[in-house]
């Protein structure tokens, strides 16, 4: 499968509110989550974070902007930035 747009611009975990884009890749190794990379990848995929999905960062918490609420193709998912670091996104629709 071809990447959807240009090069990955950033990790979803670094994005600011109202960021819109598409998922380019899920690379569990980019996150220092307590879960192992394989398990983190599976969980992210189960919540709908797969390549090509449209994402929008809708809300963030009060302290250090953590956790974040992300709209993924019609579902709103809350997660911490630490885990969201594993999701590479490119900006734009």
């Amino acid at each position: 499968m071809k990447p959807h747009s240009a090069d990955p611009c950033c990790r979803l975990g670094d994005a600011s509110p109202r960021f819109r884009g598409r998922i380019v890749a899920v690379v569990a190794g980019l996150s220092d989550s307590a879960l192992g990379p394989e398990e983190l990848e599976r969980r992210l995929v189960e919540m709908g974070f797969v390549e090509g999905a449209a994402v929008e960062l809708r809300h963030q918490g009060l302290f250090r902007g953590d956790p974040i609420a992300v709209q993924v193709d019609g579902t709103m998912v809350a997660l911490r930035r630490r885990e969201a670091h594993a999701i590479l996104v490119s900006a734009g629709d």
Partner: peptide, 12 residues
């Protein structure tokens, strides 16, 4: 020694 577990939750 254990790092914090992730938090992942659907907001219906």
């Amino acid at each position: 020694k254990t790092p914090p577990e992730p938090f992942m939750l659907e907001l219906p």
